[in-house]
Every structure is written in structure tokens, then in C-alpha cells.
Design a protein around this nucleic acid. Structure first.
Lengths: 367, 367
DNA sequence: CTGAAAGCGCTTACAG
DNA sequence: CTGAAAGCGCTTACAG
């Protein structure tokens, strides 16, 4: 089957008594091979377990069939889902995945990374680093002159210079906040992620807009900036309650911080959800077993990853062909999140209707 | 900087007014280049942003500088740590990482995977799939005739046919159980992982041996086979208590199941750790914020991943050289886990001394 | 110190 | 339907 001495197309050709390009034809399943020849070559391939050298193939074709995937924080929930989905979809489409992890989202070493990927001749790059600060400035500066297509995963503040796909994070904030309103809360605080993160900003924005629309308080004392950790949730609740004891609900910008909030609430003797409603984001595996089970917002991260691969495959196809309309989808595609109702937030309505009108909802909540 | 038209070594040579192999010498920082020539070539490289085509380089060198990493369940705690560490170490040593995820640990498609990796000419393979059932049978059958070095990550039942590195899972079971004993428990149950997993078996073994050594009950009614999920922990506690209400401690084979146990204990009105001590495994981010904070066993997974890369680099170096002593480390390297004491298990001793004698410990616990 | 030649293992036109 | 030639972009001996 496998062998130590690597075998080449030449060996196969010799053994089958044909030329190497006939073998090549068989390998690439081209139609113009005589049935008998085909059989003979296939037999040899089968017998020897020959597998063509992708490196050589890539060199002549000018395509490596490898996608460069750049990610951060694989040990966290979001990135691990995205990368898993990317790998799955890529494998399905015949791409290999070159994994490149960075240690900090705000890395200055974009250039070196891009150069490495270019040197490895990846067919396309999937940039799955969240937008933090101006860590995507490079996409505007030199995004357009990159030698290969790039897909950004995760939305960004300004219209991206490169095609991008992400989750609608403002909608996350809106869904969570609307649910809290529907549950009858009217002093709704928020524990955000680091506000240098686009995702954190957008979730805050969704919260703010929803409350403002309903004429409710959105002052700064209701906002605590966390850092995604459980500890931040704990400190957040304590701090928010210090500032404003009448808070009756909190939107935690991720489940870990929601856990911290539940923990602190327990310690402070605030019962959830009776005295305090909590909604998180992510739906981590443990969420349904928090006390109480956590109401949270699900993000279709797997869909985002898979879609990124499909899109970049399209772009790669185009960049190979004599580029015509140049109709690159250089806009931002946003996928919709979904609310998962459990028990950490009061829920006065028997049926959750996301499409309900705010006024109506508030009325129902007040009844 | 970057350019659409890919530039080759030939372009650089022309622009610098030298031959291509002089450029090659500069690229590979060989000593035999005149200072002035060196300067001129470097200048051109700098100016044009030229990066040599790794594919072409690999083809001539017979080395791709890519490691094939095969993993399962990147969305879970262990694998994500291992893969992260592998990528980090690989990048540091100049290797690219080709990520290959499988959907089920007991995949039958080992052959196709191995073929793909061979076709991509990876320099070595890191097989980071846990041993489940006989999913490593291939390593004995054809492990030795593989064209490239392979490192298995995660221990295995029989002495592996290939060099392997993992965590001492029996020690995990021992550390956890000894701690429970030290806390004064003497009816100690276990919720295991799926027993087709080597890791789960070993943890069970550690539990069993430790109890047996201390003359305590290790009968089957104290064993519940879970599947690593929170839900399994919940069911596990309920079931174990049904069978044997006097249970006063449980070793959960991972933190998720430990969470399920805490959850169920809360529901059943068993206070932790007063009536029930619980120890988990992994030390997930949330563990320190469970109620009560979870005592657990930490596994040096990052070390394992990094070590795997270092080892395979050695093997690759050897397989390149005219193989001499053939002293491949074809044995199993096991790294030691560490107990992290928090509040979910009673702890009578002020200082935890893992080296303490069992008899002495039991005595202390009884006092 | 530097360059002309050969070759890595394939594929892509180009003949027949 | 099949094969001889050229070439992908490098590196490795081999001359000078």
C-alpha cells in the first residue's frame, strides 16, 4: 500500500507501459484515453497505491488547492466553531487548510503573515480574526493589491475593502434586549465585551437602540465594559448594582460573563430571574445547565465559516478566469442570530414572537 | 509591496543583474556571496517584496516544511488546546500546519486521510485523535511503512507501534481519588467517559486502583458510564444515588460532567461539598465559577502538543539523514497531570501533599 | 565568489 | 487516442 520510496508518475508509466502524460490523463480523469489503457493504468495505480505529488501539480497548475486560514483564540468558543466549519467545507471542496494562529487579535505582524501565506501559494485567504481596534487597517491599505482573494470573517465597522461575512451583532443586542423588555424588565443594564471589539460595540448598539426606541434609560451607569471572562461578569454585576440598585435585567455580551453574573447574583442574594433577568450570547455547551438555565442568543458561526469557504471558492474561480465584470461581492454579508429562550430571563409571553411591535410588547409585559 | 503579477527568482536576478542561483544563495543565506552582491540582491528583494515560492522550493528539497495535523473535535476543550499548541510550536520551528479534522474519532477513512497527507507531501504527521475502540489499529498494521514520521498524541492501550505522547490518565484518576480520600470520603463513585475511550478507561483504572489499595468498595454500582456531556453528569448522579444512597463523593471524568453533577446535586438537595464531594478533570474556564468552585485535575495539553512537534521535528531530521541507529522514540511519553484544589471537594488538610502515604492520609481524613 | 546545466514531479499545449 | 517537448520556480551539484 504505502511505501517508503516515493513513487512517481514515471514509475507508474513504466509499469503500465505508457507515457507519463497518459498517466496524467488518467489521474485527471480526462475522456481521451482508450478503455484498455485506462484499465491498465488504473490497475497499476491501485496496486502501487500511487498518489500524485500535489506540490508538483500545484506548481504547474498555479493553484495549490490550499486555503490559508488565519484565526485567533482557537481555544475560545467562537473561533473553534468557525475554524471547524471552514475545515469541513474546505475538505468537501477539495481544499487543504493551512492553519495560522495569531497570539493577539491586534497583531502588528500582518505583513509577515501575509507574506508567509503568499510564499506558500495559498489559493485564497480566510481572515477569521475579529475586528479589534484598527487591526483591519491593512485591508484598506493593501487589501486590493493582494495576490489572492481574501474573505474576512466577522463584520467590521466601516464597509470593508474586502468581501466579508459575519453575524449581525447589532441584532444580537436587539434580540436579547427585546426579550428582556418582553419579560417586563425596564431597567436593563449591559455588560459589554471590550469596546475595542467591533462585535462588542455592535451588541452595545443593539441594546442602546432598542432601549432608546422604547424610551428607556440608556445612560452610562447602565454600561459595564467587560473582557469576555467570567470574572468580568461578576465584577460587572456588583458594580452595576452599586451604581444603580434598581436594575432588574442584564444583557451579558457572552455566556461566560453571564455565568459570572449568575454567580455574583447568587452570592448577593438576588434571585434569577425573579429579581434579575439575564441573557447571554453564544449558547455554550454548559449554558443549558447554569442555574437557572441560561437564555442566550445563538450565532450561526458554522454557517458563517462554511459560507466563507464557498464564497472564496467563487472568487478563486473568478481570479483564475480572465476576470470580467469584476463583480466581487466586496460588501458585508451578515447572518442572523437566534434567541434561545430558557429560564434565566423572565418570560411573560407563552410564545416568543420576535416580529412583535415594541409598543405592543411592552404593553404585554406590563400586564 | 505585494503584487498581483507574481514575481519569480528570475525577475529578481534580472533586476539585480546576477544569476538566479546567486539570488538563491542570498535567499538561503549562504556564506559565499560577495558583500556588494548581497547588498544589491537584498535591496531588490526588499523593494519588490519578493517571496520565494515554497512549492517550488519544496519540490527540489523534497521537504514541504508542512506538518499534517489530524484532529477530532476542535470545538472541545482538549483538542483545541492541543492544536493551538501544535500550531504555535510548528510556526516557531518554521513549519506550516495542514489541518485535517475528522468527524468521528472512530473513522474508517484512515486510508484516505493518510493518502491525502502523503499527496500533500507533509514532512510528518501528528495524529491527535484520542484512542477510541480500535481506531489506532492502522498504526500497527501499516504504521511502520508510512513514508513520513508520525507522532501520536494521547496515550494508548497497547504499546504503540509509533512514537506517542500523552497525559498520564491513570494518574488523573489517582490524583482525584486520593484527594477525595484525603477529604474523608469513603464511598467514592465515578462517572466515567465512554469506556471505548482509552482516556476514560485509564481514569477509571486510577480510581479503581486507588480505592482498592485503600481497601474500599470498587463495585460496579459505583460506576456510571457517561459520554462527557453535562447531561451525563446529571443522570449519573441520580442513578448512582439510586443504587447507593450513601455515596459521599464522585469523581467526574471531565468538568462538563462535574457541572452536571453539581447541577443535579443542587436539584436533589445534596449540598456540595458537605454531603457530596466532587472532583472534575480539565479545568475549563468556567470551572472556577461553578457553585461551588470546582476542584479539578489539570492536564498539560499544551505541553503535549508542543512536545509532539519537537519530537517529530527530530524524527524528520533523522529520516532525512542516512538513518543510522534508528533510535526512534517509539515508546509512549506520558506527562503528569496536576490537581487544582478549589471548593467542590472537602479538604481536611490545610496543605495538599500529593506524595503522602495512603494509610496516613486516610487516618488524617478520619480524624 | 559566480554562473550554466540538470532535475524535482507534474501538466499543458503541440504534434501525430 | 497517445507521446515527445517545454516549462512551472526553485535548488543542487558542477564548473570555473
Amino acid at each position: 500500500m504505502a511505501q517508503r520510496q516515493r513513487m512517481t508518475i514515471r514509475d507508474v508509466a513504466a509499469e503500465a507501459g505508457v507515457s507519463i502524460q497518459t498517466v496524467s490523463r488518467v489521474l485527471n480523469s480526462r475522456p481521451d484515453v482508450a478503455p484498455e489503457t485506462l484499465r491498465r493504468v488504473q490497475e497499476v495505480i491501485q496496486k502501487t497505491g500511487y498518489a500524485p505529488n500535489m506540490l508538483a501539480r500545484s506548481l504547474t497548475q498555479g493553484r495549490s488547492h490550499v486555503l490559508g486560514v488565519v484565526a485567533y483564540g482557537l481555544e475560545y468558543f467562537g473561533p473553534s466553531r468557525v475554524v471547524t466549519a471552514i475545515e469541513r467545507q474546505a475538505a468537501e471542496m477539495g481544499y487543504g487548510v493551512s492553519l495560522n494562529l495569531i497570539l493577539e487579535p491586534e497583531t502588528g505582524d500582518v505583513d509577515r503573515l501575509l507574506n508567509t501565506l503568499r510564499a506558500r501559494q495559498v489559493d485564497g485567504i480566510i481572515w477569521a480574526i475579529p475586528e479589534v481596534g484598527d487591526n483591519r487597517a491593512w485591508s484598506r491599505t493593501k487589501g486590493s493589491e493582494l495576490p489572492v482573494p481574501v474573505m474576512l470573517v466577522g463584520g467590521m465597522a466601516d464597509l470593508p475593502a474586502l468581501p466579508s461575512i459575519g453575524i449581525d451583532n447589532e441584532a444580537i443586542g436587539r434580540l436579547a434586549t427585546e426579550h428582556l423588555l418582553a419579560g417586563g424588565s425596564n431597567k436593563i443594564a449591559i455588560v459589554t465585551g471590550p469596546l475595542s471589539w467591533w462585535e462588542a460595540q455592535q451588541r452595545l448598539l443593539g441594546w442602546r437602540k432598542t432601549l432608546a426606541t422604547n424610551g428607556l434609560d440608556v445612560s452610562d451607569r447602565l454600561v459595564f465594559e467587560g473582557d469576555w471572562t467570567v470574572t468580568a461578569g461578576e465584577h460587572g454585576l456588583q458594580r452595576l448594582l452599586d451604581r444603580c440598585p434598581e436594575i432588574d435585567a442584564i444583557f451579558a455580551s457572552n455566556d461566560q460573563m453571564a455565568l459570572g453574573i449568575l454567580y455574583a447574583a447568587h452570592r448577593l442574594g438576588r434571585s434569577v430571574p425573579d429579581q434579575l433577568s439575564v441573557v447571554g450570547v453564544d449558547n455554550i455547551a454548559e449554558a443549558s445547565h447554569f442555574w437557572p438555565p441560561l437564555t442566550t442568543v445563538y450565532q450561526p458561526l458554522g454557517d458563517a465559516g462554511a459560507l466563507a469557504v464557498k464564497q472564496i471558492d467563487l472568487l478563486i474561480g473568478k481570479s483564475t478566469q480572465p476576470r470580467r465584470t469584476q463583480d466581487l461581492p466586496s460588501e458585508m454579508t451578515l447572518l442572523m442570530p437566534e434567541l434561545i429562550v430558557r429560564e434565566s430571563a423572565r418570560c411573560l409571553e407563552s410564545v416568543v414572537r420576535p416580529a412583535i411591535e415594541p409598543a405592543q410588547r411592552t404593553a404585554a409585559a406590563g400586564s
